[in-house]
């Protein structure tokens, strides 16, 4: 649109309208800045007291007022990685099914069903995980893992049904809809003429997917995965129910642990000392910064697929 010609006709109504809409657009930036500022101010006591040691200390002791974030960071990172490891292949399988395999009559309904899975609140996943999935994992799956893979330190432990692996699993179920729907959209961007050329030289469907579709969509898929990672890192309710809330670092994925978000959810309202509260807020600030960076990377990677 041509701005010059419009400027001439600008009425006071236009100026007000533009000003108000500008104000609200700018407010997003201010809000963002304010979040960082407020969280930083609130975590100052903790930052002054513990400094960088906050990140490397493994002690989280509210009684002694000793706070270190490492167990929470560790739990957050490990559960998120587990979630991605489980969710990635399944999501890509779903996207392949939806774009290349499903008959037209199934594409719609299954696509909708996967999206509905994304609209279920995380607390429902958490509660379902705690009451339904956790007992099953504890009674059947984890004993099996311990019996057969217990010699690997990662799978050595007691079959509790809660811990990093169960939390990562429920996170995986939660982020599958995101990763698969973004991957599907990226796959749909692959020009059909390119796929036809693959079929044209006599490739099977899988060979076309493997050699043409996936390479073409690679950076979009990476973006989708990082987006899912951003979600997994910040997800609170599902993890809080499943991780066991124990501020320890254990090599075994079956052991209870904690995450940044679970610590926030469980301890925030119980923090009875300013330093305790401040330490929790600092955890929140770190979570915000980590997810911001991760999501910004995801955004930059998927950007070129959204230009159309």
């Amino acid at each position: 649109m041509n701005t010059e010609s419009r400027e001439a006709a600008t009425s006071s109504g236009d100026r007000i309208f533009k000003g108000v809409s500008y104000f609200f657009a700018i407010s997003v930036m201010c809000l963002m800045g304010l979040v960082v500022l407020v969280l930083f101010k609130e975590s100052l006591p903790s930052i002054q007291k513990f400094g960088l040691g906050f990140i490397t200390s493994t002690s989280w002791d509210p009684v002694a007022l000793e706070f270190g974030a490492l167990p929470a960071i560790y739990g957050t990172v490990v559960t998120s990685i587990i979630a991605i490891v489980i969710a990635l292949p399944i999501s890509i399988g779903i996207a392949i099914f939806l774009t290349e395999m499903a008959p037209t009559s199934l594409k719609g309904p299954i696509g909708v069903a996967i999206e509905l899975l994304a609209s279920i609140p995380s607390i429902i996943y958490g509660m379902w995980g705690l009451f339904i999935l956790s007992p099953l994992l504890g009674d059947y799956v984890e004993p099996f893992i311990i019996d057969h893979f217990g010699f690997i330190p990662l799978f050595d432990g007691a079959p509790l049904g809660i811990g990093m692996l169960p939390a990562g699993f429920i996170l995986a179920i939660m982020i599958i809809p995101f990763i698969s729907s973004v991957s599907r959209d990226v796959f749909l961007m692959v020009p059909s003429i390119l796929k036809e050329s693959g079929y044209g030289v006599g490739a099977t469907k899988w060979e076309v997917i493997r050699r043409v579709v996936l390479p073409f969509a690679r950076s979009g898929i990476v973006g989708a995965v990082i987006l899912g990672l951003g979600r997994a890192l910040g997800e609170t309710m599902a993890v809080t129910f499943m991780i066991g809330n124990s501020p320890d670092i254990s090599l075994s994925l079956l052991d209870p642990a904690t995450s940044i978000s679970a610590t926030l959810a469980n301890e925030f309202t119980e923090a009875d000392h300013p330093l305790y509260l401040s330490s929790i807020v600092e955890l929140g600030l770190m979570l915000f910064i980590i997810t911001f960076v991760v999501l910004a990377i995801a955004k930059l990677m998927t950007r070129r697929y959204e230009k159309r």
Binding site: L194, S197, Y199, G200, V201, G202, A203, P215
Partner: peptide, 25 residues
């Protein structure tokens, strides 16, 4: 389709190197 090759309206190189494009088939 491996007996009947096809060339399309627009060039359709696969997202790989020049030699891999030919090696593909």
């Amino acid at each position: 389709r491996s007996r009947i090759g096809m060339v399309f309206q627009k060039p359709t190189p696969f997202p790989m190197s020049i030699s891999d494009n030919i090696a593909f088939g």
